[in-house]
Design a protein around this nucleic acid. Structure first.
Length: 461
DNA sequence: AGCACA
């Protein structure tokens, strides 16, 4: 029994720089946590929304005495520690440092990632989002998209302070009912920070806005409506043509790289951009041509054909909804051949480990949100053929413009297969012919000759 | 209201 008047705890009471806080409101943000604790000392780390109910948190002070100050203060205070009116219980943690803190979404920035729970994309208009967030400061840009996590929006403010204010005020709150369709029940906002600092908005559309640039063109495809209008004149379902092709790769026994795709699709004209991504367990790619006509020819010619003999890497092509991909100029999974000094980029980025950004941000854009969002291709494995990539990159520096509008191509032969490479028939050979590294790159087994488009025309010669 | 994550 106790006669000391001090509360007895089942858990250790050894003082620690780290305090364990319980009974927090589940909406409690790091900012609120810091507000509560910083009068007692310098906070070097936090971890909030911990536990099944997300109602616990840890705060680490720079100095043990500061933690003791806080515990002592509230031990004798008549006013309990409170967050949002809830009494918060504070004790020493049984650990002495916070480890593994700070998921990327906790790192403050001027762009917020807002997840709107319990709604579909059509339920909350971009204007409503704009209205709600404009209460805290000038909203520069908004990009919205749908992910497995739900309907999400990136909101760009002027600075991290404004973003933080909005986050503190709105995280865990709901958009007012009168701004929503009647059928929407609750719609809580979950807000974290994005790693982005400046969104790349290409069009004003139902899914993205740039309020700093009223003259930004309206996207003719995006304005049509939510998803896939795709009805032909006869009322039959028909995907609208596009200069961007969506390729899905079936039976992918061999690596289908940006370089391979570039070689294959360049047979029909200038390939401007390529992005590779995973979807539903399969590999897909977006290939951007300058115009629909070129894309149409490529689509008709390549559909159902295989990149390699033996039925490997069979291509299925459709038109993408995108018209202009927003991809990294040079990454493992994407290429922008319209960037003038792609070779410099390549040289710089291939050797730079900082190419990959915030891994948490990546999944949100990794599927097919290339149009409205600064694309981050998910960090993949280091390619086994990395040296070949660099060799290939060198070759590609001369690629833009090397197929000047060649509208109806020669039969697509495997330009990267040494035996079949139409040297001299393509300006690819000028100055920097495809290196042996590129030529052999797709081969994972020496016994199998990549033979583009089996069933197509035989290679010349 | 009672100790994270790997």
């Amino acid at each position: 029994m106790s006669t000391s008047g001090q509360p007895q705890f089942r858990y250790t009471q050894t003082p620690s720089k780290v305090l364990h806080l319980r009974n927090l409101p589940w909406e409690c943000t790091e900012e609120e946590l810091i507000e509560l604790c910083k009068p007692f000392g310098k906070i070097v780390n936090t971890k909030c929304n911990v536990g099944a109910n997300r109602n616990q948190a840890f705060v680490e002070f720079a100095d043990l005495n500061q933690a003791i100050q806080m515990v002592s203060y509230y031990a004798s205070s008549s006013e309990p520690a409170q967050v949002r009116g809830k009494t918060v219980y504070i004790q020493y943690s049984n650990r002495h440092e916070i480890v593994n803190n700070k998921s990327p979404g906790d790192v403050p920035g001027n762009v917020l990632l807002v997840t709107i729970e319990g709604v579909e994309a059509g339920d909350v208009s971009i204007d409503v989002i704009h209205l709600v967030f404009s209460a805290f400061g000038f909203v520069h840009k908004i990009a919205t998209f749908e992910k497995a996590a739900g309907f999400q929006a990136l909101i760009q403010f002027t600075d991290a302070e404004t973003a933080s204010t909005a986050r503190v005020a709105l995280d865990g709150r709901s958009i007012p009912r009168y701004l929503l369709p009647e059928h929407v029940g609750s719609c809580h906002l979950r807000i974290s920070y994005s790693a982005h600092t400046d969104l790349n908005i290409k069009f004003q559309s139902h899914r993205s806005r740039d309020y700093t640039n009223p003259y930004l063109p309206v996207n003719p495809t995006a304005i049509e409506g939510p998803v896939q209008p795709a009805v032909g004149p006869d009322g039959k379902k028909k995907e609208p043509e596009s200069n961007v092709l969506l390729a899905s790769v079936e039976n992918m026994q061999y690596a289908v790289t940006v370089d391979v795709l570039h070689t294959v699709f360049s047979a029909f004209g200038t390939v401007q951009k390529i992005a590779i991504f995973e979807k539903n367990g399969g590999t897909q790619a977006l290939i951007q041509y300058p115009d629909i006509a070129t894309a149409a020819v490529a689509k008709e010619t390549l559909e159902g054909h295989c990149i390699y003999d033996g039925g490997y890497c069979k291509l299925h092509l459709s038109y993408s909804r995108h018209t202009d991909l927003n991809v990294k100029a040079y990454s493992e999974k994407s290429r922008d051949y319209t960037v003038p000094d792609a070779s410099l980029l390549a040289a710089g980025q291939v050797s730079s480990p900082t190419v990959w950004q915030n891994p948490q941000a990546a999944p949100m854009y990794s599927m097919n949100n290339y149009a409205a969002v600064p694309t981050q291709v998910p960090a993949g494995q280091v390619p086994a053929w990395d040296p070949a990539v660099q060799a290939g990159a060198a070759a590609y520096a001369s690629v833009p413009g090397t197929f000047p509008g060649q509208p109806y191509p020669a039969p697509p032969v495997p330009t990267y297969v040494t035996a079949a490479m139409p040297v001299g028939s393509s300006s690819l050979s000028q100055g920097s012919p495809l290196s042996p590294g590129v030529a052999s790159m797709p081969m994972t087994r020496p016994g199998v000759q990549p033979n583009l488009l089996s069933g197509g025309a035989p290679p010349p010669g």
